[in-house]
Nucleic acid binder design. Sequence first.
DNA 1: TGTATACATGTTATATTATAACATTTCAAG
DNA 2: CTTGAAATGTTATAATATAACATGTATACA
Lengths: 177, 177
Amino acid sequence: MSHDHCRNCAAPDLAFAAHDHAPCASEALARAIGILAAKGQRLTPVRRRTLEILLEGHRALGAYEVLSRLATEGFGAQPPVAYRALDFLEEHGLAHRIRRLNAFTACMHMGENHTAAFLICCVCHAISEAPAPPARAALDSAASAQGFTIESATIEALGRCPTCQNAPQLVPNKAAA
Amino acid sequence: MSHDHCRNCAAPDLAFAAHDHAPCASEALARAIGILAAKGQRLTPVRRRTLEILLEGHRALGAYEVLSRLATEGFGAQPPVAYRALDFLEEHGLAHRIRRLNAFTACMHMGENHTAAFLICCVCHAISEAPAPPARAALDSAASAQGFTIESATIEALGRCPTCQNAPQLVPNKAAA
DNA sequence: TGTATACATGTTATATTATAACATTTCAAG
DNA sequence: CTTGAAATGTTATAATATAACATGTATACA
Ligand SMILES: [Zn+2]
Ligand SMILES: [Zn+2]
Ligand SMILES: [Zn+2]
Ligand SMILES: [Zn+2]
């Protein structure tokens, strides 16, 4: 199955472009279901709902933000409920942890087994998962020059997305669909 | 003044090679003094001692680890004492925050105004500050393809350093000089 | 179908990391 | 000196994350 059956995915990444995000989310959920089924892993109600919550927008959510959503929907209200679901999603490549934000975001390239590179807008807080292979290759090369073997890489950039280039300054947390 | 008057600095980075680390530390301290003087900033006793503590080895220390060292030496014993000193050092390019570890490490290229890339050994916890420009350039290129402007980048790799390539597995925290 | 087993969820409690707010001291200018 | 800015110290609390254990649920297979 091609990744491109969702027209929104034709562009390299349009997290920063206004678009109908529903297809992004529903396609990602379908892919997640397939990926987990193939691995014999279960997408239980908490896990599924957690993924849906992350898929609501091109942004990152803190574990406690996810937790409070889950809690109001009848799931457990204690931190491990959210952390376990988030850790599971990350472990299976369906979500990523954003270290700069102590937060989590849905993966936009599920099933592609990749190093992720994130562009995080410090004004509107939108997040884009950018093509990481070139940066990862450069990092691998720097590492092997020192005899170092990379097992996992964190690549995150903070800056301004196209629509916030001229924004005056930082703004409190706000969703970006 | 050349960065190479310390023979340890001739190699691109030898955090992972056994070496006499004293010159690394004393040269770095001297450079820090010069850099701050040039900016009219003060290297007060807490700040200086904090930097010296970070310079003791090629590794990262948590804020509370630094704090307990400071406290036993007669400085304040409350978190802001350590965080303020660490934030100051980072702000002036003398230290870096390692996001993967929630920890701090002395900068190995002070005064060079750089994006840093870190190689973090998950076995012995040694940290090397690798040449980041190629990876940073790749990231800049991915960003500009989306109209995104990078203000700061985090590049960190977890893996195995040369001497831990065949180590059986993870090991508790241990200093690496 | 039953039951054993692994997996998943829920809860309590606590650990770890980080900052807000304010009082006090120290420093450098004028 | 005086004075304002910077630095330090303290109390208190916020935000993030995990350990440990009790309970429930879904499979596998006898
Ligand atoms: Zn979208
Ligand atoms: Zn991804
Ligand atoms: Zn050294
Ligand atoms: Zn550096």
